[in-house]
């Protein structure tokens, strides 16, 4: 059967063991890439001709923003799998995503604001990207708030999953509405970061960091999923067997 791998992944004991084995394979490369990327970004990359050294915030802002969005998409897809195929481990994945995504959304907002101050002269600008990040944070908070509102894990899983799917459908709509809204009220004097051609020496650290953050997310997810599985399967026999064995 070609789908056996999928069915095996859906089995909590199998995924638990797999996650435990895989974690170091993601965690260590992630650590190396992130530390190397940050060093390259801070030291090796040449200063920008327009923004000077200030542009170096890009190396923490863009990976955080990337995480906030990628984690939301992962969460929505896992939630859809969980809701459609009634798969417990998919719900465990979706539940594990939310706090990770929310924390990186906060990081993206703070670094965006710290970037905005020297570039725009104010701590906050209703720029489409910052605004979208802020809305994304509320979507994460709604998801976590809804889950926290249920005592029963299964109902929290299914209700949260539906919200995550609705959010996933809405994210592009919200994003383009915000861009449309912003294009109407654009003050002409505001400095825009368009899509300049970034020279390779500046781009390479960014790509390294994007990969590093992604692997970091995978490692975090593997650890958190194990905790979620343990909590969901607390009555299952395999747990005491695994723990004692």
């Amino acid at each position: 059967m070609r789908w056996t791998w999928f069915h095996r992944l859906a089995s909590p004991p199998y995924l638990y063991g797999l996650a435990a084995r895989l974690t170091p394979w993601f965690a260590w490369p992630a650590a190396l890439l992130i530390l190397g990327g940050l060093f390259a970004g801070l030291v090796l990359a040449p200063p920008d001709y327009q923004q000077g050294e200030g542009f170096r915030i890009i190396y923490v802002h863009v990976p955080s923003a990337w995480m906030s969005l990628m984690v939301y998409v992962t969460m929505g897809l896992a939630a859809a799998v969980g809701l459609i195929w009634r798969m417990k481990v998919a719900h465990a994945i979706a539940a594990s995503c939310a706090p990770i995504g929310a924390s990186f959304t906060v990081a993206a907002l703070v670094t965006g604001s710290l970037w905005g101050k020297p570039m725009w002269g104010t701590w906050w600008v209703w720029d489409p990207r910052l605004t979208s990040e802020l809305i994304l944070l509320f979507l994460y908070l709604g998801f976590m708030g809804l889950r926290a509102g249920f005592d029963d894990t299964q109902r929290a899983d299914r209700a949260g999953a539906l919200l995550a799917i609705v959010g996933l459908v809405n994210v592009p709509i919200i994003h383009y509405s915000v861009i449309w809204w912003n294009s109407l009220h654009q003050a002409p004097s505001v400095l825009r970061f368009g899509k300049p051609t970034i020279p390779g020496a500046m781009l390479a650290p960014l790509l390294i960091l994007l990969l590093g953050f992604t692997l970091f997310f995978a490692a975090l997810l593997l650890v958190r999923v194990r905790a979620e599985i343990l909590q969901r399967e607390r009555t299952a026999r395999w747990i005491s067997e695994t723990l004692s064995g």
């Binding site: 170096r56 670094t111 710290l114 970091f216």
Partner: peptide, 23 residues
Amino acid sequence: MGGYAAFIWPAYGVTLAVLVLNI
């Protein structure tokens, strides 16, 4: 950091803090 120290270091600090806190 070419005068941008007050913005760059907090940005890196916050991001590192989020990374470490997540761990």
